[in-house]
Design a protein around this nucleic acid. Structure first.
Lengths: 197, 197
DNA sequence: GCGACGAGACGAGACGTTCCGTCTTGACAG
DNA sequence: CTGTCAAGACGGAACGTCTCGTCTCGTCGC
């Protein structure tokens, strides 16, 4: 009764794993998401198709792991805190839009986003392993601002984060307008200052 | 030198057009976006594949037209204006999240969103024909609020709109949290009130 | 008027291609 | 030996193109 032949992770080839992840990231930046194929990844990585299917259930999870291996390398740990909340948030968000304007970041990010939008399981994984750690850093920074009296005590920090990042991510995805530093500054200023006169 | 054989729109069959659009909308709600195929749409609509390929360049543009035919039917023209900006925005956004929670709306919307994310031409079309008309209504409502002294004069209305709608759309797409009326209220209150104490 | 005519969209589906996900093979490493 | 590896054959699904024969039209000679 050979059921599913659960793979033996202890025997897994690290070389093949890395080759697959880098090839996936490389290809999606070159040919775009629509033309990204498993067979293409296998060929580019010099790997058999079965080696991919043995370890990943979907194209999305490959991209996800590829991103995870990237971001965990360059994890900074904290957001800047100069005491000036507006300036700090502008710095972070300007850096974000700069990244999003590079095709080598833009294309893979859009691809990953698409998989997340359509795959709730992957979305949960993303929320837990990529979004939540970043969100915690943002919460920390906003909490410090609360202690400094720059943000009201009764503000929900998750809502505040969504207010700062949501508009930028939305404009990026839907291309409803140019993703400039000026726009970032306006969002930060308006979000922090509020709409009331 | 017969180049491309541009089809003659005056001879176009309205019956076939409507059948294709309704079948597309119907199918994406049933089988989901990943399993939506041109051949499936053609069969469901009782239409030849070539009739689809003659008039639409991509699966995304079919969905787009299908949505356009829906929304132009039920266009209201104005956003509610009771004088209470927060209450009016909550009403609109609560209705939006209610729609997004229905699978018959959720799935097609996600599908269309995905196509927009990956197709700049479609994104431009979307921005012009669906987003911009809605955005104009929102601007009108916010302008009225400015005249009533409820919103600062120097606030960029497009930024204000992004601040109100961006967080909700983002949470919907990425499923980073529950899409409740409570969340909507928090976003509206925080966006309008501002983060400052 | 009217009836043959030509242009072009239509439904149907065959066609070659690409990619899918599975399966088989032989090499090789633990 | 056992299980992963690279390589690639395999059947199936959907792609986009194409070729049929049918069906509407508007045009024009009569």
């Amino acid at each position: 009764m050979s059921q599913k032949a659960t793979p033996d992770a202890s025997r897994r080839s690290e070389t093949a794993r890395r080759a697959i992840l880098t090839a996936a990231l490389d290809l999606v930046g070159k040919v775009g998401y629509a033309k990204l194929t498993i067979e293409g990844i296998a060929t580019a990585a010099g790997v058999g198709k079965q080696t991919i299917y043995r370890w990943w259930p979907s194209k999305g999870s490959i991209l996800f792991d590829a991103f995870l291996s990237l971001t965990t390398d360059e994890q900074e740990g904290v957001l800047p805190d100069t005491g000036d909340l507006a300036a700090d948030m502008k710095l972070v968000l300007r850096a974000t839009v700069d990244e999003l304007r590079e095709p080598s970041y833009d294309l893979p990010m859009r691809a990953l986003h698409t998989e997340i939008v359509h795959d709730p399981a992957l979305a949960a994984d993303y929320a837990q392993r990529l979004d939540e750690p970043m969100r915690e850093l943002k919460r920390d920074r906003l909490r410090a601002a609360q202690r400094a009296g720059q943000v009201a005590e009764d503000v929900d920090l998750d809502v505040a984060i969504d207010l700062l990042f949501g508009p930028i991510l939305n404009r990026w995805l839907q291309r409803t307008g140019p993703l400039t530093h000026e726009y970032v500054d306006q969002v930060v200023d308006t979000a922090l200052r509020g709409l009331k006169p």
